[in-house]
Amino acid sequence: MSTLTALSSLAAETSTSGGEAAQFWILAPIAVAGGLGTVLMRRAVYSALCLAGTMVILALFYLANGAYFLGVVQIVVYTGAVMMLFLFVLMLVGVSAADSLKETLKGQRLITAGFGLGLGILLIAGIGQASVGSFTGLAEANAQGNVQGLASLLFTRYMVAFEVTGVLLTVAAVGATMLTHREKIERSKSQREQSEERVKDGTQVPPLPAPGVYARHNAVDIPGLLPDGTPSPLTVSATLQERGQVREVHHEAMGSLAALEQRTADHQNRPGSVSGALGPGARPERESNRGESGSTRTTDATGTAGDDGDSDGAEEAGK
């Protein structure tokens, strides 16, 4: 960090030095890449991380441009606080909410491309048309130190705006609190009531079955197998199913079972087939509601459970 600061402060003082140019040409592509990553990454967490990277690089540019205070604030407030807030909310909303990049609106991509290109060209043209000239440099303005210079402006010319922003922040804090606050309007159910309700609704009354524990596999991402050899969706966390991170071992189990049946049949000289006995239709349907209130991912899991186990696993792995 200190070397970076030293580098940038050097760049700020010698405004047209080759050092700054080198720094720019190295960091700028990374910043652009970060921006593109933000927009194009499928998972929101990656987007957030890309954005954080871009922000850090922008902080370096601020430093290079003599805005020491803003550079630090950019890192502390933006990268440190705001981006972390984003991540928190992402976690709250659920990391599983993977966002497919498939466009659903007809022509939206085309329009975006057109407008984006147009806007970019216009901005570049505007910059080109303006007589930008060269840097005056902030040596004079920062003579008493950047923070002192900012402060003397902020508390004199921009006093009112500063106060108003203070009010704005207060209002934002109160507003956010109010928005996310949920008033409890009915008494929470006691344990007895909950259990009685579960029995009445016919949902899963006993604890959920554990994930599969096998000789070679012993992990939460492996579903337990039902007596007929098919995997039970109840045994794996819904989040893992949503993410497609469920490892399935029942192919092998089914295979060995089928082989055993075959051998037995061969031995006893009578025809028989596992597939006939253990077809998808023969598998008993199960309610997979775990009794966790308000979890829709379990409903999705039910949908998955209804599908054929083999194709399900393949599809999820494909994603």
Partner: peptide, 27 residues
């Protein structure tokens, strides 16, 4: 169509046109 992004695209286009007009006026 009720999709916020579609409306955002319109706004975006509008802003682009405004910038274009401004530049033209200056030119």
């Amino acid at each position: 169509n009720g999709f916020a992004r579609s409306y955002a695209a319109s706004m975006f286009g509008g802003a682009a046109i405004l910038i274009a007009v401004t530049l033209l006026m200056r030119a």
